[in-house]
C-alpha cells in the first residue's frame, strides 16, 4: 500500500458515494447510464470472488464489500426505486460490443488458465471500457449535470492514480502486472477528453452544466 494507491481507492469511493447521493437526494437517475452501472456491478462481482478464497487484509476485504454493496445499491436505485426517471432512450450503447470482446480476450490473454483467474482478467478488461455507455450518453445529450461531471472526474482520477501507483510499485518493489497496467492505461485514456473539458469548462465560477461535443 502506498499513498497513490490509497488516494486512488479514496477517489473511487468518493465517486461511488457522489453517484449514490446524487440519485438519492434528487430522487432521479436522469443522465446516468444504467448500462455502465450494470457493467461495473459485473466487474466487481467477477473480481471480488476472491473474497472467499484469498484474504489479503481487513482493508482490502472491507473495501471490496463496500464496492460490491454500492454497485448493487446503485443498480437498485436506477432499475427499481427510481426506474421512472431512468433515461433509457439515451442509454443506447450496445453493451455486447464490450462484453463479447472482453470475454474472448480474458480467455485468450490471462496470467493463468483457471476459472478465478479468468474471471479476474475479465473484470480488468471489462472495467477498462465499462464507462463508455456513460460517456456516450453524455456526448449524445451534449451535456452532463455538474454532479455527474464530478462523479466522472473522481472515477477517472481513481484510475490515473492507480497508474502512478504502478509506476511507484515498479520502482519500489519491482512489481508489475502487465494486464492491469495495459487495461488501466486504456481506461484512463478514455477519460482524457472528459478531463480536458472538466478542467477547462468545469472550473467556471457558476457553471452548472458542461457540454461535451463528441
Amino acid at each position: 500500500m502506498n499513498v497513490f494507491r490509497l488516494a486512488g481507492d479514496i477517489s473511487h469511493l468518493l465517486a461511488i458515494i457522489i453517484l449514490l447521493l446524487k440519485i438519492w437526494t434528487s430522487r432521479s437517475c436522469a443522465g446516468i447510464s444504467g448500462k455502465s452501472q450494470v457493467m461495473f456491478a459485473i466487474t466487481y462481482t467477477a473480481r471480488y470472488l476472491d473474497l472467499f478464497t484469498n484474504f489479503i487484509s481487513l482493508y482490502n476485504s472491507t473495501m471490496k464489500i463496500i464496492f460490491l454493496g454500492a454497485a448493487y445499491a446503485t443498480l437498485y436505485l436506477i432499475y427499481v426505486r427510481f426506474k421512472a426517471t431512468y433515461d433509457h432512450n439515451h442509454d443506447t450503447f450496445r453493451v455486447e460490443f464490450l462484453l463479447i470482446p472482453t470475454v474472448i480476450l480474458s480467455v485468450l490473454i490471462n496470467h493463468d488458465f483457471s476459472p478465478l483467474e479468468i474471471l479476474w482478467t475479465f473484470s480488468i478488461y471489462l472495467e477498462s471500457v465499462a464507462i463508455l455507455p456513460q460517456l456516450f450518453m453524455v456526448s449524445k445529450t451534449g451535456e452532463a449535470e455538474s454532479i455527474t461531471s464530478h462523479y466522472l472526474f473522481a472515477l477517472g482520477s481513481y484510475r490515473a492514480l492507480y497508474i502512478i501507483n504502478w509506476v511507484y510499485r515498479y520502482y519500489a518493489e519491482g512489481f508489475y502486472d502487465l494486464i492491469a497496467i495495459v487495461a488501466g492505461v486504456v481506461q484512463t485514456v478514455l477519460y482524457c477528453d472528459f478531463f480536458y473539458l472538466y478542467i477547462t469548462k468545469g472550473s467556471r465560477a457558476n457553471a452548472t452544466e458542461m457540454s461535451i461535443e463528441a
Partner: peptide, 10 residues
C-alpha cells in the same frame, strides 16, 4: 505461482 497471482489491488 499461487502466491504471485494473489491480486492485492482493488
Amino acid at each position: 505461482i499461487e502466491d504471485e497471482l494473489g491480486h492485492d489491488e482493488l
